[in-house]
Simulated scan of single mutants.
Amino acid sequence: MITCFDIGGTFIKAATATGPESLDLLGRLPTPRADFAAFVATIAGFIDRGGAPAGAPVAISVTGVVDPETGLVTVANIPCIDGRNLAADLGAALNRPVRVANDADCFVLAEAHAGAGRGYRVVFGAILGTGVGGGIVADGRLFRGAGGLSGEWGHGTIVATQLSVSPYQLPHFACGCGRAGCLDTVGGARGLERLHRHLHDATLNSTDIVELWIGGDEKADQTMALYIELLARPLALVVNVVGPDIIPVGGGLGNCVPLIARLDAAVRGSILRRLERPLVVPAQLTADSGLLGAAYLGLAENDHDIA
């Protein structure tokens, strides 16, 4: 048995697992963000509740970046673990082995083994949530590059400024990473809202924009046409570089089937490979993908199974 966790800036969710697809949910609690002792106590309380035996491992999906070489995590919205070797520090406090991967990596692990990527050799998992993230699984194994940054297609100055749809030109927006022109500035829910505000001087949440688009609203249609072009170009480049067989899309925007269908058509029309079947598809595992990915992470026999 292992105890697995999905740790976000607001809540910690937990479950026990005796196999990669046999989750017994333990509930969720607010994330102690500023106090590491309280953070450890919350994790320990879940372990006690789940009844894991002494020394049984812990597996964690966490928001942020996990460096596989140093073990250091970068989690700006949880200061008490930011900059720590979380696996080592938590393992010492709990007297248990601890394995940690970021949430995008756990998402793609889950989709590759039990979701839309099941049966495919190379899976690129794309997340269109608040921002943009991703991860890569090849031959069933998680690929983690130097610094833990593989699959991070949301950053780098890659957003097009010359476009084939109105308004035909677009400025680069400043990104929280310190650069400008990152896909993260326009590709997630906040990015979609930014585009709509820039085009129409109107502040709407992403859900409303999508609903208006599906209902035929002209302004929302312009926003979504621009959004899809801005996403499709870099995603097509990812396809040409990585060569995925399938791209499950998670996050809130990934739940919009018409959006993913339009994105798929735009990407398949822009890549070198010719495919008659969908390549970009909605993720199949939504509610507990972080926990399920952590279960796969924790139940791997050794480090070579996941990296």
Score class of each variant (00 low, 15 high):
L72R: 13
T3A: 14
G133H: 05
A202S: 14
R262L: 14
D6S: 11
T18D: 15
A93N: 01
R190Y: 09
G45R: 11
G215Y: 00
I81T: 01
P278D: 11
R274W: 03
K13W: 00
I60H: 01
V62Y: 02
R190C: 08
C80G: 03
A236F: 05
K13D: 02
V62A: 08
A126R: 01
S61A: 14
L231H: 10
L212F: 00
A294E: 03
S61D: 09
S289E: 06
L292A: 14
P244G: 05
A34I: 02
S206P: 05
T223H: 03
I136W: 00
E229H: 11
F39P: 05
V159W: 07
A232F: 08
L149P: 00
E211Y: 00
A56H: 00
P171I: 09
F107D: 07
R144D: 06
I2T: 11
G91P: 02
N302C: 15
E193K: 00
W213K: 12
G50V: 14
A87M: 11
V65D: 04
D89P: 04
Y120W: 07
S166A: 15
A114C: 13
G125V: 10
P53L: 00
L72K: 13
D82M: 01
T70H: 11
D48G: 08
A92W: 00
D288H: 12
P32W: 09
N255P: 00
G151R: 06
V62I: 15
A41S: 15
A220H: 06
F39T: 09
G19N: 05
F39G: 06
S166E: 13
L72F: 07
